[in-house]
Each structure stands twice: as C-alpha cells, then as structure tokens.
C-alpha cells in the first residue's frame, strides 16, 4: 500500500523556538491516522505545513504526491479540511454551501449538480436542501461539513477535533462516514484532545515539545505503556518529559 503522507525530518522554527523538530513518519492510503499532542506541542504548526499553509524551515514532506515546499498549491487542491470551528457558511443553504465548495475546488457545473444529488441522498436530506445551514442541528452540520470536505474527491482529509461536543448518536454516525471514506481509499488525519476519539484511529502519533514521542496502533500503545485506555497513554507520554 502506498504512502500518501510522508515527512522526513520536517522542521519549523520561529526565531530561536523550534515548534516542530525533525519529525519523520508515513501515513498509508486508506489509513485513519490520529495526530495527538498536548496544547503547544507543535501539532498545529505541523498541520499547517502539511496543508501547504506554512513553509518548513528544513526537512521535507509530501502530501498526495506533492512536495509541500515546492508545490503547496497542488497540495491544497488534493486535500480536504474540516474542523469543529470552521465548517460551513451558516447564512447559506445546504445547496449553496455545496455549490460554493465545489466551485472553489474547480468542479464543473454538471459535476457539482451530480455531487449535490449524491450527497443529499447519502445523508438523506434531499427535502432540506434549501434550508439555511444555520438552522440545522449540530449533528447534521458536522456530517454535511465532512461530506463537503470530500466533494472534490481528495486523497487526504484533515479533521480537526471532528466530533467534540456532538451527541453520542451523531458521533457514531459520523465515525461511520469516516470508516466508509477510509474503505473507499481516502486517507484521514485526525487531530483531537479527546482520547475516546483517538481510539477510533488505525494508528496514532503523539507529539511532545515538537517531536513525535510515540507512534503505533492504539492497542500497541496501550500495551507498551501498560495502560487500560488512551487517556493513560497520553498522560504517561506527556508527563515523561
């Protein structure tokens, strides 16, 4: 299976402060990869480099086959992004939001039309297409935002705390969409502070002070740190330093 994200001693400094310090890892196609770390550990800086928003100070990274330093614009076209904070425009209807996202990613009118129909059918909200997003329940918004992030068929999707705050029923439906995307070959990189969410991932990396301190499957990490849950693993790794 091919690596869709690779980093090789990827580093970012701000003045004398090293936010990301020589991180190297690979994420495979169709993998759900958890990207964890305490506040200030360097996760956001690393993500900004991987999404083509920030230039590395040294080292290299490729995402969806493109070098983030040489071709950040190509990277941006091939990734999707969704977070709890930024997802959709509340003042636009469901249909308008989909059209906007499709347009931004350069989809043709007919492609947008087909995609819109598919998406509405898949989420079972065809009758609600002209409702303003602001009037929808949070759970719907989250599922819709995730589907919008997939509209241009990206190879990699970045999810930033995708389900924090949503009700448990919606969370499960949401993770089912994630599993489905992974089964379709999409690679998902998930950042979260919630260790229950981390348990859903195939593999996890844990950043501490700009470095990757641990990287393995949730089961292996629990074994390695002699822990019963990921919360204990997180604390063991973060407190060691």
């Amino acid at each position: 299976m091919a690596a869709v994200i690779t980093t090789d001693r990827l580093t970012r400094k701000f003045g004398s402060f090293t936010a990301v310090n020589e991180i190297s890892f690979e994420v495979m196609q169709g993998e759900i990869f958890g990207f964890l770390g305490a506040n200030g550990a360097g996760k956001t800086t690393a993500l900004r480099m991987l999404t083509g928003l920030l230039t590395p100070s040294s080292g290299a990274a490729t995402v969806a086959g493109f070098d983030v330093w040489r071709h950040p614009e190509m990277v941006k076209k091939r990734i999707g992004y969704m977070s709890q904070k930024f997802s959709l425009y509340e003042e636009l209807s469901i249909r308008e939001n989909i059209r906007l996202f499709g347009g931004i990613y350069g989809l043709s009118r007919s492609a947008i039309r087909t995609k819109t129909d598919d998406l509405l059918r898949k989420l079972d909200i065809t009758g609600e297409a002209d409702k303003l997003v602001g009037s929808l329940p949070l759970g719907w918004k989250q599922k819709l935002a995730f589907s919008a992030a997939l509209i241009h068929e990206p190879r990699v999707v970045f999810l930033d705390e995708p389900t924090s705050g949503v009700d448990p029923l919606t969370r499960r439906q949401f993770w089912e969409l994630i599993y489905q995307a992974a089964a379709d070959g999409v690679t998902l990189m998930v950042t979260t502070h919630f260790m229950e969410e981390a348990e859903y991932c195939d593999r996890l990396s844990m950043m501490v002070d700009g470095r990757i301190e641990a990287l393995d499957t949730p089961a292996q990490l629990k074994k390695q740190y002699n822990a019963t849950n990921m919360d204990e693993v997180f604390r063991a790794i973060a407190r060691k330093n």
Binding site: A38, N39, G165, M195, F234, R235, A238
Partner: peptide, 10 residues
C-alpha cells in the same frame, strides 16, 4: 474540559 489536553484536564 473543552479545548484543553488530557493532562490539563486530569
């Protein structure tokens, strides 16, 4: 607990 990492939360 919202927006803080597990260590701070504990």
């Amino acid at each position: 607990g919202t927006g803080v990492d597990p260590v701070s939360r504990q």
